[in-house]
Design a protein around this nucleic acid. Structure first.
Length: 423
RNA sequence: GGAGAAGUACCCAAGUAGGCUGAAGGGGACGGUUUGCUAAACCGUUAGUAGGGGAAUUACUCUAGCGAGGGUUCGAAUCCCUCCUUCUCCGCCA
């Protein structure tokens, strides 16, 4: 949610910012509704003031034995008028909210306009691995090493599901555990949230109402909206919903491990076989609530942490700064970490680090009390995957494969996997 | 799943034959007096917030607000309805 005051004050500035990610946007209608809304409110409130005054008089008049029937009649008319005005105000405010809800975040100053094609690679780490043999893709490796069972995954869950088994399960588990240990070392608090969330979580995150179709919704007979989280961010953003935090407890740093459940309707591509895109994947997610002045620095911290993890796994990757249209709607600035998948001859996202600024905080009414001014201000919220394990596994298998079809286990995972090499 | 009870400010808690109770009292916190220091005692402060009008960052003013949302009424913390949450008991269960 954007601050409507910004639009009132300087609609053109907001418009220009949004045009980086939208084809067209006009605030004329919104501003007209807004003006009418405020006029209606002013009238209704002054009538309420009158009503309150008279209502206070009535018992006193009664006490003195005066006749109040004329006053009662008069008030009846005012009460009706108030009802009408409030109904009109509610209607306008609903329209305004609907409009505001649908607006995406404003891209940061330094975020360029346009889509994917304008994403800019800001860093590359390591080199594209060269093989003196014909490398296998991760599906072949996973099956030949007995790590993943795609057939039975589809049998029990449907297409887009797979099963980790044996050393594959251990490897996945080791990744999750490795990340958990690293985040704890860095002072992030470990959270295991519910996987089924209520509607407000989706609204606060910015997935609702626009992107409702992307998530698995429970079929509740009473019509109550509950859905499977598409990322732990959706849970963590609501952790402090409707709260006012103390300035001295900021920044709040959390991380969570959850599977992520996504419909991914229509987004399959032939090349994205195996574990590149599924309906359920594992991810460890970092999250920060910060003061406004600290969020830029926090974003750099998050992307740095995520990169350090990929480095410790010895995987070649690059970092891209996304153009405005490629950022998700709630985010003002996003970096992606993309890891090299040899068989695809492509980089695939394993982490996305974003600053939502106060966009989500407004939706979820999350503030902190500034000690100096004693005023409440909106927090800034940031999230970063650290990391999506289900996409790392293909990268590890493919990048660390040997001529004989074995795979070298990254050193940091060996204690849990229990072996240096998978064969 | 069945049956009950409850949700009031930082915390505890009073408050229903509807009307100067936007809210008694206590605790805590903060400030002060006393004191060499601490404790104790005493005095004082402790709704904040959101929104509208207006000054247009600070006066002023109005509105809303007693879990949330509706309703009845001239007027609701108080009456009615729906929902949410918590607690207790029963059932089921990792």
């Amino acid at each position: 949610m954007l601050d409507i005051n910004l639009i009132r004050k300087d609609p053109e500035k907001v418009r220009q910012a949004l045009l980086k990610r939208m084809d067209e946007i006009s605030f004329d209608e919104l501003l007209a509704w807004d003006a009418e809304y405020r006029a209606t409110l002013t009238e209704s409130e002054s009538l309420k003031a009158q009503r309150n005054a008279v209502s206070a008089m009535i018992p006193r008049m009664k006490k003195q034995g005066e006749d109040v029937t004329a006053k009662l009649e008069e008030m009846k008319v005012i009460a009706d008028r108030i009802k009408d005005l409030d109904a009109k105000a509610d209607e306008l405010s609903a329209k305004i909210k609907e409009f505001m809800d649908a607006l995406p975040n404003m891209p940061a100053e330094d975020v360029v306009a346009g889509g994917k094609e304008n994403n800019r690679v800001v860093r590359v780490w390591g080199e594209v691995p060269q093989f003196d043999f014909t490398p296998k893709d991760h599906i072949e490796l996973a099956e030949s090493l007995g790590l993943v069972d795609y057939q039975r995954g589809a049998k029990i869950g449907g297409s887009g599901f797979w099963i980790y088994k044996g050393n594959g399960a251990l490897l996945e588990w080791a990744l999750i555990n490795f990340f958990i240990q690293e985040h704890i070392k860095d002072g992030y608090e470990f959270i295991l949230p519910p996987h089924i969330l209520n509607e407000e979580c989706g609204y606060t995150a910015g997935q609702f109402p626009k992107f409702k179709d992307d998530v698995f919704t429970l079929n509740n007979p009473d019509g109550r909206v509950q859905f499977l989280l598409p990322t732990a961010e959706t849970a963590l953003i609501s952790y402090h919903r409707n709260e006012v935090l103390k300035e001295e407890e900021l920044p709040k740093k959390y991380f969570a491990y959850t599977p992520c459940y996504r419909k991914e309707a229509g987004s399959y591509r032939a090349e994205e076989r195996g574990m590149i895109r599924g309906h359920q994947f594992n991810k460890v997610e970092m999250f920060q609530y910060t003061k406004p002045e600290d969020s830029e620095k926090a974003l750099e911290e998050l992307i740095g942490k995520a990169e350090a993890l990929v480095q410790k796994l010895g995987l070649h990757y690059r970092v891209s700064k996304l153009a405005a249209k490629d950022c998700s709607a709630s985010m003002g600035k996003t970096y992606d970490i993309e890891v090299w998948i040899p068989s695809m001859n492509q980089y695939k996202e394993v982490s996305s680090a974003s600053n939502a600024y106060d966009y989500q905080a407004r939706r979820g009414n999350m503030r902190f009390k500034r000690t100096e001014t004693k005023k409440n201000e909106y927090l800034h919220t940031l999230n970063a995957s650290g990391l999506a394990t289900s996409r790392l596994l293909p990268a590890i298998l493919e990048q660390h494969q040997q001529k004989d079809g074995s795979v070298i286990v990254p050193e940091v995972l060996r204690a849990i996997v229990g072996t240096d090499i998978l064969r």
